[in-house]
Simulated assay, not measured.
Amino acid sequence: MKRIFLFLATNVAILLVLSVTLRLLGIDSILDTQGVGLDMNSLLVFSAVLGFGGSLISLALSKFMAKRTMGVRLIDQPRNATENWLMETVRRQAQAAGIDMPEVGIFDTPEMNAFATGARRNNALVAVSSGLLNGMTRHEAEAVLGHEISHVANGDMVTLTLIQGVVNTFVIFLSRVIGHTIDRMVFKTERGHGPAFLITVIIAQLVLGILASMIVMWFSRHREFRADAGGAHLAGREAMIGALERLRQKHPGPLPEQMAAFGISGSLGHGLKRLFMTHPPLEERIAALRAQ
């Protein structure tokens, strides 16, 4: 969940900064046809460039942001038996999954936590917490690593980027249509765009961005089942189930934000809340593995 949260937060921030900057520079004015209406073709191209640009920048920064935010210490040379096991396990799983050896790191937190991120399958990062290494058996930790390697091998971050670029495009396009309409009909601006346009665009972009995020959340939930299956393939189904069961037993209630990083978020929502969950409940994921 952490990798998804960081990606989405970076994406939203980039879009807002770019939107305000382009407006202040007057670039938005090219979308206004002789002061009487929006040039829809130009607006769509503008939205796609800005939308995919923000998403691609977020992807490019994902590994750097994850390292800085989580305080990851990369393992260059293993310093003890645990680090040696970690490196060898990731190397073996990466080879089995058909990807290059990713960077491997550890971050210090008592919570059982892990994540994988990176712009390319062959230039990824896999990191685990000290709490996970101390709190799980080797078989369970191996399953968690297999889950993360599967995310990398499946290209989930790249696919997420493309989906985010599409929803960004429509958010930017519709927010400017709404801003233009309100600026003309409510504030009676006859030529160009007044201050109400920028304010309305920012508000509409935030609201539409929240709604669009439900699409990204659905994709994230769907991919977690596939990553679980990948972890089961690389480390064994019972090991993957055991890792999920241990997390459920240790945290019978809603799981903390820190734990959700490697795709385990527990039973965190019902009804409308479920639409904004990045990961399915543990019970559903365990049931899916048992049904295989």
Rank of each mutant, 00 (worst) to 15 (best):
E224W: 01
M214G: 13
R246I: 05
E245G: 00
L211D: 07
G209S: 11
A227N: 10
A229N: 13
L211A: 15
I199G: 04
T200H: 10
V186H: 09
F219H: 14
H233Q: 13
A235N: 01
A229S: 14
I241M: 06
M185T: 15
M185Y: 09
K188R: 15
I215T: 11
G236V: 06
A243W: 00
G192I: 09
L208C: 12
L247M: 15
D228W: 01
G192N: 11
F197H: 07
A232Q: 01
A196I: 10
I210M: 12
G236R: 02
A227T: 12
G209Y: 13
A229H: 05
E245K: 11
G236L: 07
M214V: 08
F219Q: 10
M214Y: 11
E238S: 14
W218C: 11
R191V: 14
R223V: 05
R226W: 07
I215W: 04
R191H: 12
A239I: 01
W218E: 02
V207G: 12
G236S: 08
L244F: 14
G231D: 08
R223H: 03
I215Q: 04
L247N: 01
I215H: 06
M217T: 05
L208W: 09
T189G: 08
A227R: 02
R184E: 05
L234I: 08
A229Y: 03
K188E: 10
R191C: 07
G209H: 13
V201I: 12
I199F: 10
M217L: 11
A229D: 13
A204G: 07
A239R: 00
V201W: 00
A204M: 13
P195R: 09
Q249F: 05
Q249H: 09
H193D: 09
G230L: 02
A232H: 01
F197D: 02
G236Q: 02
L211V: 11
H233N: 07
A212M: 07
G231L: 06
V186G: 10
E245Q: 15
F225K: 01
K188A: 08
L211F: 13
Q249P: 02
S220N: 12
A243L: 06
A243H: 01
F197M: 13
R248P: 00
L211K: 11
L234A: 09
R184L: 14
A227W: 00
F197G: 11
I202A: 06
A227G: 10
E238L: 12
F225E: 03
R184N: 09
T189P: 04
L234K: 00
A212V: 10
I215M: 11
V216F: 01
G194S: 14
R248L: 07
L211Q: 12
E190R: 11
H233Y: 11
S213P: 06
S213Y: 15
A235Y: 01
F197Y: 10
G230W: 00
R191F: 14
V201M: 14
R221P: 01
T189S: 13
R248D: 12
Q205V: 08
L198F: 08
A232G: 06
A232S: 08
R226D: 09
E238G: 04
V207I: 15
E238Y: 09
R248M: 07
R226N: 07
L208V: 06
R191M: 12
I241L: 13
I199D: 07
R191L: 10
I210K: 15
G192E: 08
A235R: 00
A227E: 00
F225T: 03
P195D: 04
L244T: 03
V201N: 05
I203K: 04
H222S: 08
E190N: 10
G194R: 04
A204D: 13
E245C: 03
